[in-house]
Nucleic acid binder design. Structure first.
Length: 869
RNA sequence: GCGGGCGUGGCGGAAUCGGUAGACGCAGCGGACUCAAAAUCCGCCAUUCGCAAGGAUAUGUCGGUUCGAGUCCGACCGCCCGCACCA
């Protein structure tokens, strides 16, 4: 394989930047914020990148997929919004500051410059004039305005909540930053700490977020399922249990099975439950048990999960239905404070966890559900609970009822005696957005001793981050800053302090798609622009954002709708989730070896430097730790942007994982060169015989006819492939079309064929333009010097007249087995076709002397003869 | 455990509404060009029996529906992903 462009013909290194300049000069990808009325619009968006410093192959795939859609839709006559920006706040910038002493802003903008250059080198049809980074005050200042509007609308509130606290770094950690109960940076044991935090009331929108999933018909089913499960609606009842200690204290329990209340054996509360704390105050053993549970932390919970443990508080509660009956109250490690009410009633016969617990501590196991077909006198529960439907027994007024009836009756009774009510419980929790970090959007609040938390007045926005901060102290640099936080209270004028927390970076990415519609508007959105462009018609990104980002964005859109910033509830009408990029792994005695350090040989691989053998490992997701990443920039350098683009589109369906191989890349490069030569020859020929090929032929000879049919079949196939996101099939159809063009070179170049070849070549340029846009321009300009840019031309239309086949090859089966094929006219009569089929020599041989009892004829498909005997 | 997805040649994958399984590419093999190589162009390429004509077997396994099943139904096996004590 040659790495020298000069020997391979098409000089992409020179051509690609040239066409990129031509597109920019023609302003082909610019669109107005508010398009003229009646303009068909299409909004294509890929998830914007975090500016880590280097574009990776996942980005190349992501943005190529989006660019294919954008260019195709543009060719179909849509005004296409296809913007790009930077998800620029976040911890890595602060880490760089701590480790290398470079300011987060400097680090971030340098990274953006590098990555923007690579993106531009790839030739994406982006509206670069709409670019912004979320760390710019012109963006985050408007985010602060949005927050204040939401606060005023009751969508945000301040409340106390537990957080993972790193006592060394003085910072809050996200769950994924807690490893084995310790902070990922400091290694210190993480504490649960109660802090005042800002919350966005996403739970208010739970019902709407859940029902809205039904309208997202162009989302992958599994993302919809994951979201629905995350929101987690469950119907049941809250039940009050009065403590049997003479006080009027009650413990509230959530259950989805109020019908099994008569199967109660105990009540269990979470270790963090207030009653547990009350017990612990006077019971050292209880306190020790609670401390033990807390020490396990969230991550080790998984390991200890199998083991159910509890502590009997000695308290007892009364049963709401059974006069005089009381049950023990346990503290149990498997009861979660965060879900429901943090307390459960234990019904061992119908719940495996309760049964495990009851068996371990020798508690009663009353059987109250009789599975269908079982006998009440003989049915018992061993070590497996029965949670299916059945008939209620030993359940007082519920006896004989099924699950649904029993539940209704139980709730009715609970409500009538004031001991509970039917409720809907959600797994979704409110979204805590406070982070004790510097490199984020400041929360626009001022804390005043007299007035409490006061919103920063709109005219004082943006609250800008101070540039002069120190990273050599633990904790939040904003907090250490000598002057920044000290301000006058906007309400009373007294000395007050700014909120030093910043927003979770998921907030930044929850509305950027709306800002892209009018990135220079003085308000967060321009209502006309938002109405014109939203929702995003096609969103493209990684499956890893299936839940959080997409759910937050859906919530934010609802909140922005309510506060008058947009007029839709759902941000993304269509969603496509791409697969990851994989690569072979290599290792030797020293550990993982990178692909550019090895030489692939016939039987294996060796080190480039020493020639020592290297073990070839599994094909795995590209990752730094396995050192199996391929950087896009050198690939573009060696093979060109179009080759990189074509490769990520070919072979694998976009939603599936793609294996990056050297052979695959060189294959894609070869195809580009082959097209260039093929079209080049046609351009030369057309030039030589100009007058001959200028007119539309009156009739076509066989070769021209075949090529014309191939051309229009390919138009239809590509259109279908691009509409259905089966780009790999589209690439295959283009290969076939190139083969057809090559085939046509072998026939006598009569004027009709010359014309057909030129038509085919021109069509090929337009069809390949969304995938290999530079090559398309280069080829088209050779074919039609001085003609319009491919990127400005309309998508070709398939002529139905050319789509019909001249003749059809039919399969002929006998008894369902293929025995031959026949060639028939598409409009041949059934009788003719059957006669021809039975005359086919091999078929005739097989049916000879036997009676054909049934003849099946599916036009254009198949003939099947069923014979007797 | 629960939820979702996927099993097709040496490899990535294709196959409309149930209608010729393996498109297209990669790898491999043969040929042309060349002093030679690279590049390029042409051809072959599921397995198996057969000189051939043709036949048999094949879409994870077993069974079913059907004139006909990769596709539909049932059971099972394997792999991947997500969630995971959610009451």
């Amino acid at each position: 394989m040659s790495e020298n462009t000069e020997t391979t013909g098409y000089a992409f290194a020179e051509a690609e930047p040239r066409w990129q300049r031509a597109w920019a000069e023609a302003h082909l990808f610019d669109v107005p914020d508010v398009p003229a009325p009646g303009t068909p619009t299409y909004y294509v968006l890929e998830m914007f990148p975090y500016p880590s410093g280097q574009l990776h192959m996942g980005h190349v795939r992501n943005y190529t997929l989006g660019d294919v859609v954008a260019r195709y839709k543009r060719a179909r006559g849509f005004s296409v919004l296809h913007p790009m920006g930077w998800d620029a706040f976040g911890l890595p910038a602060e880490n760089a500051a701590r480790e290398r002493g470079v300011h987060p802003a400097e680090w971030t903008f340098a990274n953006i410059a590098t990555m923007r250059a690579t993106l531009q080198r790839l030739g994406f049809s982006l509206n670069w004039d709409r670019e912004f980074a979320t760390c710019e005050p012109r963006y985050y200042g408007l985010q602060q305005a949005l927050f204040l509007d939401m606060l005023a609308a009751g969508l945000a509130e301040r409340r106390e909540a537990y957080v993972n606290w790193d006592p060394v770094d003085h910072t809050v950690l996200a769950n994924e930053q807690v490893i084995d109960g310790r902070g990922w940076r400091s290694g210190a044991p993480v504490e649960k700490k109660k802090l005042s935090q800002w919350f966005l009331r996403i739970t208010d929108a739970a019902e709407s977020l859940l029902s809205g999933i039904d309208t997202l018909t162009r989302w992958p089913e599994r993302v919809r399922t994951m979201q629905a499960r995350w929101i987690g609606r469950s119907e049941g009842a809250k039940v009050q249990f009065a403590l049997a200690d003479g006080s009027d204290a009650r413990i509230e329990v959530f259950t989805t099975r109020p019908d099994t209340l008569f199967g109660m054996s105990f009540l269990a509360i979470a270790p963090e439950h207030p009653i547990a704390a009350r017990v612990a105050a006077s019971d050292a053993k209880a306190a020790a048990f609670i401390a033990e549970c807390a020490a396990l932390g969230t991550s080790e919970a998984a390991i200890e999960q199998a083991e159910k443990r509890g502590y009997d508080t000695g308290l007892r509660v009364a049963h709401p239905f059974i006069e005089g009956a009381t049950y023990p109250v346990w503290i149990a490690n498997f009861v979660l404070m965060e879900y429901g009410t943090g307390a459960i009633f234990g019904c061992p016969c119908g719940d495996q966890r309760d049964l495990d617990f009851a068996r371990k501590y020798g508690l009663d196991v009353p059987v109250v559900v009789l599975p269908p077909g079982e006998d009440a006198s003989s049915f018992g529960v061993g070590d497996t609970a029965y949670d299916g439907d059945g008939t209620l027994i030993r359940s007082g007024f519920l006896d004989g009822m099924d699950f649904a009836t029993g539940r209704r009756a139980a709730i009715e009774r609970l409500e009538s005696i004031g001991a509970g009510e039917g409720v809907v419980n959600w797994r979704l929790r409110d979204w805590g957005v406070s982070r004790q970090r510097y490199w984020g959007c400041p929360i626009p609040i001022i804390h005043c001793a007299a007035c409490g938390p006061v919103p920063v007045p709109h005219e004082q926005l943006p609250v800008e981050l101070p540039a002069d901060v120190r990273f050599d102290l633990p904790g939040n640099p904003l907090d250490h800053h000598p002057s920044w936080k000290h301000v006058a209270c906007p309400a009373c004028g007294a000395a007050a302090v700014r909120e030093t927390d910043t927003f979770d970076t998921f907030v930044d990415s929850s509305w950027y798609f709306a800002r892209f519609a009018s990135p220079h508007a003085p308000t967060p959105t321009d209502p006309d622009a938002a109405r014109a462009w939203l929702p995003v018609d096609q969103y493209v990104g990684g499956i890893e954002h299936a839940i959080l980002h997409l759910l937050y964005a859906r919530f934010f859109t609802r909140a922005m709708h309510r506060t008058g910033h947009v007029s839709v509830d759902e941000p993304f009408a269509g969603l496509f989730t791409q697969g990851m990029i994989h690569h072979e792994t290599y290792r030797d005695a020293s550990g993982w070896v990178a692909p550019d350090e090895i030489v692939r040989t016939a039987g294996g691989a060796t080190r480039r430097d020493s020639g020592a053998p290297v073990e070839i490992g599994r094909v795995e997701k590209m990752s730094k730790s396995k050192r199996n990443t391929i950087a896009p920039a050198p690939i573009i350098e060696r093979f060109g942007a179009d080759t990189a683009r074509l490769f990520v589109l070919s072979d694998s369906p976009p939603e599936r994982d793609l294996e990056w191989t050297e052979a695959g890349v060189t294959g894609a490069a070869r195809f580009g060169q082959r097209l260039w030569r093929l079209v080049g020859r046609i351009a030369e020929e057309a030039k030589a015989g100009d007058t001959q090929a200028a007119e539309v032929p009156e009739s076509y000879g066989e070769a021209a006819d075949t090529l014309m049919r191939a051309t229009h079949r390919t138009i239809a196939a590509l259109t279908e492939a691009l509409e259905t996101f089966t780009f790999n099939v589209g690439v295959a159809r283009l290969y076939e079309f190139a083969n057809a063009l090559a085939e046509a070179e072998r026939a006598e170049p009569t004027p009709d064929l010359v014309w057909a070849r030129r038509e085919a070549a021109r069509t090929l340029c337009l069809l390949i333009a969304p995938m290999m846009p530079h090559l398309a321009e280069e080829m088209l300009s050779r074919l039609e010097p001085g003609g319009a840019l491919a990127a400005s031309r309309a998508w070709p239309e398939a002529d139905p007249g050319w789509l019909a086949a001249r003749s059809v090859k039919l399969a002929v089966q006998v008894m369902g087995k293929l025995r031959g094929t026949i060639e028939v006219a598409p409009d041949a009569s059934e009788a003719d076709v059957l006669a021809l089929a039975e005359a086919e020599p091999n078929v005739a041989r097989l049916i000879e002397g036997r009676r054909v009892v049934k003849r099946i004829y599916v036009p254009n498909r198949i003939v099947n003869l069923v014979v007797a005997g």
